[in-house]
C-alpha cells in the first residue's frame, strides 16, 4: 500500500465515517429489532422496576414505619399481610411481606438485599468487563510475549473449577477482617473477587475481535500516521469491540448474582447482618416450616432477576446478530 499522507488522512476520515455509519445502522437495526421483541422489553421493564424499588428502600422504610435491622422477637414469622387483597387476615399491615425469624420486616429487607445483590452483580460484571476488554485489546494488539503470558494465566484460571477458586480466594479475603473492613467492607470484597475471576471469557472474545480489527485498513493507516498504540487501542479498537461485549454484560450480571447465592449457601457469601438475596435464602431454608414465604420470596427474586437478565442478554444477542434476518 503506497499512498500519500494526505490521501491516507482522507481515507481515514472516510473510513471513520463509514464505520460510524455502519455501526449506527447496525445499532439502529438492533434497536428496531429490540423494540419489537416484547419478551426482552418486558424483562427490561421488570428489571428496571426491581432496581428502582430496591433503591427506594429507605423511602418505603420511612413510609411504612418499619426497619430492616430492627428486631422484634414478639412479631417473628409474621405472615404476608395485605388487607386490601384480603391476604393474611388479622395481621400487622405495616409488614406487607411479613417478618423474618427475628421479627425484621421482610419487604424492606428484601429491598436492601436487592441493592446488595444487584450491586454485586452489576459492579463485578463491570469490573470483569473492564479487565477483560483491556487485556483482550492489549493481547490482541501486541501479541507476542504478553499474549502468551495472558493466555497462560487464562488457561491456568480456567483449569480450576471457578467454585474452588472462588472458595479459596474468598477464604483469604473475606476471612481477613482487616481486608473485609474499610474499603473492602462487606459486599465490596465480593465484587472484587467475582470481578477478578470473571474476565477470562471476555478477554478471549475481545482478543479475537482485536486481532481482526488491527489488520483493517484504517488502523494500519492510523499507525502509519504515527498514532500512539494507546490511542489506537482506546480510540479506534475499544469502541468497535464494545458492542460485542455489551451483549454479554446482562447474562454476566445474572451469573454473578447466582454465584453470590451459591457462595452464601456454602457459607462464604455476603456476611450477615448485611442482607443479600443469597444469604436471606440460605438463612430462610432453616425456617421453611415456619415461614414458607421467607424461602420463596428471596428465591423468587433471585430467579426473576436472573431470568430477566438472561432474557435481555439473549434479546441483545439476537438483535445485534448481523447474520439474523428481520
Amino acid at each position: 500500500m503506497t499512498t500519500s499522507p494526505s490521501a491516507t488522512a482522507q481515507s481515514i476520515a472516510q473510513l471513520n465515517t463509514e464505520e460510524t455509519i455502519v455501526s449506527k445502522s447496525l445499532t439502529q437495526r438492533a434497536l428496531s429489532r429490540l423494540s419489537r421483541d416484547k419478551l426482552t422489553l418486558t424483562a427490561l421493564a421488570v428489571l428496571i422496576f426491581l432496581t428502582v424499588m430496591a433503591f427506594l428502600a429507605p423511602v418505603f422504610e420511612s413510609a411504612l414505619e418499619v426497619s430492616y435491622t430492627k428486631t422484634n422477637i414478639r412479631e417473628k414469622f409474621a405472615p404476608i399481610c395485605i388487607p386490601a387483597l384480603n391476604v393474611g387476615g388479622d395481621c400487622n399491615p405495616k409488614h406487607i411481606l411479613g417478618t423474618d425469624d427475628l421479627g425484621r420486616d421482610v419487604f424492606v429487607r428484601l429491598l436492601y438485599a436487592g441493592q446488595v445483590s444487584l450491586s454485586i452483580g452489576f459492579f463485578a460484571a463491570i469490573l470483569s468487563l473492564a479487565i477483560g476488554i483491556t487485556l483482550g485489546v492489549v493481547t490482541g494488539f501486541y501479541g507476542g510475549v504478553i499474549d502468551d503470558f495472558i493466555n497462560w494465566v487464562i488457561t491456568t484460571l480456567n483449569s480450576v473449577p471457578t467454585l474452588f477458586l472462588l472458595l479459596i480466594i474468598s477464604a483469604v479475603i473475606l476471612r481477613n477482617p482487616d481486608l473485609a473492613r474499610g474499603i473492602f467492607g462487606g459486599p465490596f470484597a465480593l465484587i472484587i473477587i467475582l470481578g477478578l475471576l470473571g474476565w477470562t471469557g471476555t478477554t478471549r472474545l475481545v482478543r479475537g475481535e482485536t486481532l481482526s480489527i488491527r489488520e483493517r485498513e484504517y488502523i494500519l493507516s492510523a499507525r502509519a500516521l504515527g498514532a500512539s498504540p494507546t490511542r489506537i487501542m482506546f480510540v479506534h479498537i475499544v469502541p468497535n469491540v464494545f458492542s460485542i461485549v455489551i451483549i454479554v454484560l446482562a447474562s454476566d450480571i445474572g451469573g454473578l448474582i447466582l454465584a453470590e447465592a451459591a457462595l452464601s449457601f456454602l457459607g462464604i457469601g455476603v456476611k450477615v447482618p448485611t442482607p443479600s438475596w443469597g444469604n436471606m435464602l440460605t438463612d430462610a431454608q432453616t425456617y421453611f416450616t415456619m415461614g414458607l414465604h421467607l424461602v420463596i420470596l428471596p428465591g423468587l427474586l433471585i430467579f426473576i432477576t436472573v431470568l430477566c437478565l438472561f432474557i435481555i442478554g439473549d434479546g441483545l444477542r439476537d438483535a445485534f446478530d448481523p447474520t439474523s434476518t428481520d
Binding site: N158, S159, V160, P161, T162, L163, F164, L167, I168, A171, A262, F265, L266, G267, I268
Partner: peptide
C-alpha cells in the same frame, strides 16, 4: 469444569459421597 464445580453443591445437598464435598469441607477447614 462446570460439572466439577456444580457437583460440589449438588453433592452437599444430596449427601452424595463425592470429591466436591471433600473439597468444600477442606477449603472451609483449611
Amino acid at each position: 469444569t462446570g460439572l466439577l464445580g456444580g457437583a460440589a453443591i449438588t453433592e452437599k445437598v444430596f449427601s452424595w459421597p463425592g470429591l466436591g464435598q471433600v473439597g468444600i469441607d477442606a477449603v472451609l477447614q483449611l
